[in-house]
């Protein structure tokens, strides 16, 4: 396997992870000042801050791997929808607090399992990023998991809301464990973890929390896919229009 091919595959992997972090961080940041209580305003903003922080490290590294001189901002602010590679789960709108928590927990459980394994990556840069991110993600999954338990095993109304959200969002979880040929090579080289093994660990973690939350795990039916290839929902365009407004309106400016 040539290093060039690894490099290209690693660019794709890092970009997907960076985009997913950025888009999910953006969604959480929409809560700032509007959460159910002050502690949650602070907590959700804090998780958003961490995710955008991860995105910065990942996009910077992706730019280096690509070798075309694109930095974190060039990648974040100057790509259109079909060049974004985030999971569809991340771009789903916030709806209500319960929906946000379910989306976050399904992601956090995946991110924790992923980053724990990436700490042992044979790619030193990725391992370094993972070592930093994993500490924060451990807190994220505790936060979203605790809330899922409170809401699932809270009142009838809260249970109904998160059960509905879980049903809506479950079809977006399949995409987290997809792999293509290029990624297969990265797995073989010990650069990224094996998605099948990741899925088993994720499912065990999710099922334990769902049980405590008195929620039923939805069946694995048809899974929505496409984000990893740049095929997105209608939501992402609006998100990017908002995020990218200033650099697009003032293309020559530095900020």
């Amino acid at each position: 396997m040539s290093t060039d091919l690894h490099r290209e595959a690693l660019f794709g992997f890092t970009l997907r992870l960076g985009d997913t972090s950025l888009v999910l961080g953006h969604r959480l940041s929409e809560w700032c000042g509007h959460a159910p209580e002050l502690e949650e305003d602070i907590a959700l903003t804090n998780v958003a801050l961490d995710l955008v922080g991860h995105a910065r490290m990942l996009l910077t590294y992706a730019g280096e791997l690509e070798g075309k001189g694109r930095d974190e901002d060039r990648l974040a602010y100057r790509r259109d929808v079909f060049d974004y590679r985030n999971h569809l789960l991340a771009e789903q709108p916030n709806r209500d607090f319960g929906h946000t928590i379910v989306r976050q927990f399904l992601h956090d459980a995946w991110a924790l399992e992923l980053y724990e394994r990436l700490c042992a990556s044979t790619d030193a840069t990725l391992a370094g990023i993972a070592a930093k991110a994993v500490k924060e993600v451990r807190y994220h999954v505790r936060h979203s998991g605790d809330w899922l338990v409170r809401l699932g095993d809270g009142t009838d109304a809260s249970h109904a809301k998160v059960a509905d959200a879980l049903g809506r969002l479950w079809p977006y979880t399949g995409e987290m464990f997809e792999r293509d040929e290029a990624e297969q090579a990265l797995v073989a080289a010990g650069i990224v973890p094996d998605p099948a093994e990741l899925k088993a660990a994720w499912a065990a973690r999710v099922e334990a929390v769902l049980e405590e939350a008195t929620l039923e795990r939805p069946a694995d039916g048809w899974m929505q896919k496409g984000g990893r290839r740049g095929e997105h929902s209608e939501h992402l365009g609006y998100l990017l229009a908002e995020m990218q407004f200033l650099p697009r309106a003032y293309p020559d400016a530095t900020w």
């Binding site: 509007h34 959460a35 159910p36 209580e37 209500d96 607090f97 809401l151 109304a157 809260s158």
Partner: peptide
């Protein structure tokens, strides 16, 4: 924010 969050705070108390 306060009104929309009422069900969340109630759930936390109930739990």
């Amino acid at each position: 924010a306060w009104d929309d969050g009422a069900w969340v705070r109630e759930a936390a108390v109930a739990h």
